[in-house]
Design a protein around this nucleic acid. Sequence first.
DNA 1: ATTGTTCATGTCAGGGCTTGCATTGAGTTA
DNA 2: TAACTCAATGCAAGCCCTGACATGAACAAT
Lengths: 342, 342
Amino acid sequence: MLKKDEMPSIPTLEDVARASGVSTATVSRCLNAPDRVSEKTRKRVMKAVQDLGYAPNFGAQALAAKRTNTFGAVIPTIENAIFARGLQAFGEELHRAGVTLLVASSSYDPAREEEQIRALVARGADGLLLIGHDRHERCYDFLERRQIPHIAAWVYDSGCDRLAIGFDNREAMTALASEVIGLGHRRLGYITAEIVGNDRARARLEGVKAAMAEHGLDPDTLIVRGTEYSFQEGADAFAEIMAQPNPPTAVLCGNDVLAVGAVKQALNLGLRVPQDVSITGFDDISVADIVTPGLTTVHVPHWEMGARAAQMLLQLRNGEDRPDSVRLDTYIARRGSLGPPS
Amino acid sequence: MLKKDEMPSIPTLEDVARASGVSTATVSRCLNAPDRVSEKTRKRVMKAVQDLGYAPNFGAQALAAKRTNTFGAVIPTIENAIFARGLQAFGEELHRAGVTLLVASSSYDPAREEEQIRALVARGADGLLLIGHDRHERCYDFLERRQIPHIAAWVYDSGCDRLAIGFDNREAMTALASEVIGLGHRRLGYITAEIVGNDRARARLEGVKAAMAEHGLDPDTLIVRGTEYSFQEGADAFAEIMAQPNPPTAVLCGNDVLAVGAVKQALNLGLRVPQDVSITGFDDISVADIVTPGLTTVHVPHWEMGARAAQMLLQLRNGEDRPDSVRLDTYIARRGSLGPPS
DNA sequence: ATTGTTCATGTCAGGGCTTGCATTGAGTTA
DNA sequence: TAACTCAATGCAAGCCCTGACATGAACAAT
């Protein structure tokens, strides 16, 4: 209970110093480099810190120390689960290193992403996790000028020399599409998210076309529907594709969210999966195993990707040598949603 | 391309001032109150800002201005979708008001939550969104002393006078359980998350027991399994419950994630839902409609809750009167997973 | 010509913390 | 005891920005 006029002012380092009879420098050291202070003093100071409920002023601290022990991540969406697992891993790994993670979401909007990057950096992020490589050169200039370590996840593109950890989206999708075609499917549909500003989506689409070309199918016959990422959008797009005359026997989806929506829709339309139509996803998020039938999809090592991204970024932040980009492997998780055409 | 030794130092206000031949104060005004500066000067200054790639130093700005236009949210988990939608709404609404949202996750760990609250406040959050009321008094002291506006979401408890927006978890669950019992179910199972430090989970469990008592069933006969939140954990807990001698005819779950896991498991076990066993959830997240059969669950107005939380917090931050806590309504979303016992 | 107004702009004192360097004093060695 | 270490601590200069206040020029009113 606070008494009437006791304006509850926020304690500062100086208050702590006064209360424990030392200088502010010593208090600061107690907090940041405890072993450079005698145990006796430290105890006394810590008690004062407790008693006063002192917490450092972040602004002042950042200003003086030029670091914050905070990393940031800008992801396209938090509303669906695509990045959740990797992000969680990223966060856990950082936590272990005493670093706080702040997350911002861009809603797949490049302008918004740039804004969020700036916001995070302005707030003192010592390192940044980004998704994909597709952003304005200006963003990179900004980060480089401030020497903010950053890493792109969910992509690995040997043609790009920016630091990245991920997998080859194109190749992974080619592998899956090849399997689909190998089962005998000739008429294919594809549901994708907006490909502008999304290199992963673009690469995946290319991957499908590459597989088609490779197997002697004309990539232009691929029926493509672009949409947003949500179960509902996936379902709608699927319905549209299947409403075509001579509909495809297999519909590949740019990610699991779309695919799960598609599977659900197939059920609604009275189509049997995979007898009447096969459906595949990408990402292997947990919901892929929830629909019936389970989704055949590209398994992505989310946890490893997030955790290693954290390690690499920490390494960078600590001034160690820039690590090499990491290419992770994906594999096809085979469940019930893909079968031969009948 | 940077030349050899040109250490790319970060431009400060002073650099901009020098480059444009004005004082730092004028530059500051250009950025924060453009109409108090003549157009000619402003243009010149803005050009310098562009040319130098200036961006204000957040720490210094926070230190000097004592505000940041940043709100924070600490949610228990980002790995599953329970809070995603509400959070997205919260963020959108803030964005509209020019406020940046920073998100931290506590992994359902109270100590971690406290840490995150401090981290966010230290980083200058002008307002905070929290989930539930269940936290150490110390957290509240901390927030009050710093006069940080904060609001609890996902709860409405008339017995608690802290600002909140949400629904009555207990009552909502009682309504659902009553419906289950009303259909004739007598042996009930319940899957919940850890109830320590989670008032929502606790209230929901109480809700089930209250409904039982109300309908003349002995609450102690409720078969309860506690677990973590994930599809898999839900599935496992469900299997355990059903392995009992004389298993329940209906299993209620503390949230949709658990429930979806349970439905999937039922399928695996060859149990028909709802003929052999009914299953219900709570939250009505999008995946509730993905499983087969669809999940009967308590619908929560996620979007409205998030958006209004933002409005209330903004109101508070702007020094307006403290709004009243808001009680939102829930309803039962009836899908296929609940039916009479057979 | 004098005084008063009004703007645009400049000056400068913080704001809370870290850190390089200086100081102190207890302990060691000769 | 004197000289020397070295760990513990203090001092004070920033870090970059904001905002209250001061200044001064242009113009209007008298």
